[in-house]
């Protein structure tokens, strides 16, 4: 038996964490702005993977040989498709319930999630079958000491990092980001300040959806098998990661996701039975000790 903690396992954990992070960001942004656990978010991830799949076959012949161009086109289409679906779901299903009791929009979100999954599964052109995801970028292995890193791992890490930096800049430096922060702190005050709340919410869904779409493409390339229910489990894990980091908190979601990825990897390597429950165990522990999550701020009780 080799050592439990070794470079290979750390790389494995980081890769898993990157994909969780991209999904978790969407969860946490939407929650931060509208206080809605958007259960359909995992399905936006799935849609991103299918959009990438379709885009690959549509453009493969056209840009034959130019891998970089193709990968870029596929990425843009995956992000755009998921973003539009997220935007649409907000417009049609969530917006009408915005000022109704919070939990009715939660049930609606569950309904949207079920609808997307069952519809994809039933619709003949998509179907319930597993599909093999095409090799958009050929895999190459890089040996670093005892560990193997494939170029896909590097791409996963890089894309996640670039998008996260971009998001942080957007939230910290732009007017839109300022508006987003304002809405998440106090919706009514933000409205009084002349912020178009619905527009900010729409943007949040667009960005969250786009990130889920990018995650869908990365997941498709890394784990080349897609099917209509592929969003459920990563969605749930990413959501837990978001809560772990302090839901509504963007750096928290990233931190939570990487902790989850690494913890899951080590726990699975230690004992597969523990690996299955570890996500939930960490979650419970963190929340019991620090109910607002790792980086979450304490919200004062309103009286």
């Amino acid at each position: 038996m080799g050592p439990l903690i070794n470079p290979q396992q750390i790389i494995n954990g980081l890769q898993l964490g990157s994909i969780y992070a991209l999904i978790a960001l969407g969860y946490t942004m939407v929650y931060g702005i509208v206080r809605l656990i958007n259960f359909a978010h995992g399905d936006f991830f799935m849609i991103g993977a299918y959009a990438a799949y379709a885009a690959f076959f549509a453009f493969n012949a056209m840009v034959a040989g130019r891998t970089g161009t193709l990968a870029f086109i596929v990425l843009v289409i995956a992000m755009a498709t998921s973003a539009s679906v997220a935007w649409l779901a907000n417009k049609l299903a969530y917006k009408p319930l915005r000022y109704k009791p919070k939990l009715s929009s939660l049930i609606t979100a569950i309904g949207v999630s079920m609808f997307i999954e069952y519809f994809f599964s039933a619709f003949p052109a998509i179907g319930a079958s597993y599909r093999a995801f095409p090799e958009i970028i050929p895999r190459r292995d890089i040996h670093i000491g005892p560990a193997v890193v494939s170029n896909l791992v590097l791409i996963d890490l890089a894309v996640a990092a670039i998008l996260m930096i971009g998001l942080t800049l957007l939230v910290r430096r732009t007017t839109l980001g300022k508006a987003m922060r304002a809405v998440s702190q106090d919706k009514d005050a933000a409205r009084l300040m002349g912020i178009d709340i619905e527009m900010v919410i729409s943007f949040t869904f667009l960005i969250g959806g786009a990130f889920a779409g990018a995650a869908g493409l990365l997941a498709g390339m890394t784990y080349p098998r897609i099917f209509p229910y592929m969003g459920i489990l990563p969605g749930l894990k990413a959501f837990i990661a978001a809560v772990l980091g302090g839901i509504g908190n963007i750096p928290g979601a990233m931190l939570g996701a990487y902790i989850m990825g690494i913890a899951e990897t080590f726990a699975s390597a230690y004992n597969s039975l523990i690996g299955e429950g570890i996500a939930f165990a960490i979650l419970i522990l963190v929340l019991l000790i620090r109910p607002t999550g790792l980086l979450g701020e304490k919200i004062a009780d309103k009286i």
Partner: peptide, 9 residues
């Protein structure tokens, strides 16, 4: 699922 969404809406 559609019926569920409509009930809630």
């Amino acid at each position: 699922a559609l019926l569920l969404i409509f009930i809630m809406l």
